[in-house]
């Protein structure tokens, strides 16, 4: 991972910043330069709420090489109050206990590393509610 590539995603991955269209109110994560719904080009920056509802999940047994150590791991899509949907790993829960429709919390976590001396990619994962 090129460091600049990691750095420019930080507002979304570290702070869950989303863009809310000033005209139609549609919310996008990550931000966009033009609204997909109405074509407007001005947005307010908002934060995605911390709790979302799991709408589907899978358990990946044949991951890309940088995720080999964690395999098998669960990956899910959560829908948030603001209307955005996000894909991330579902962790700190046994695969058998994961159920579609459950509420999950989004937490700041290490997602992947670039080898021994490489860039550490931080971001978010879904975890059960405390």
């Amino acid at each position: 991972m090129f460091p600049a590539r990691v750095a420019r995603e930080m507002p979304h991955r570290y702070r869950l910043e989303a863009a809310k269209c000033k005209k139609c109110g549609a919310v996008f994560f990550p931000h966009r330069l033009i609204c997909r719904e109405c074509g407007h080009r001005e947005f307010d920056t908002i934060n995605v709420s911390a709790i979302g509802k799991l709408i589907s999940y899978t358990v990946i047994h044949t991951p890309a090489s940088q995720f080999k150590d964690e395999s098998p791991f669960a990956l899910g899509i959560c829908e948030f109050l603001e209307g955005v949907k996000i894909t991330a790993q579902v962790v700190d829960i046994a695969a058998a206990d994961i159920k579609t429709g459950m509420d999950l919390q989004i937490e700041f976590r290490r997602v992947q590393t670039d080898g021994h001396a490489g860039v550490i990619g931080y971001g978010y994962k879904f975890v059960p509610l405390i």
Partner: peptide, 18 residues
Amino acid sequence: YEVFHGATFPGLYALMAR
């Protein structure tokens, strides 16, 4: 926003399948 988090193609279609 998909692959960075560990998504693979079978994984994405698995989300659709479930």
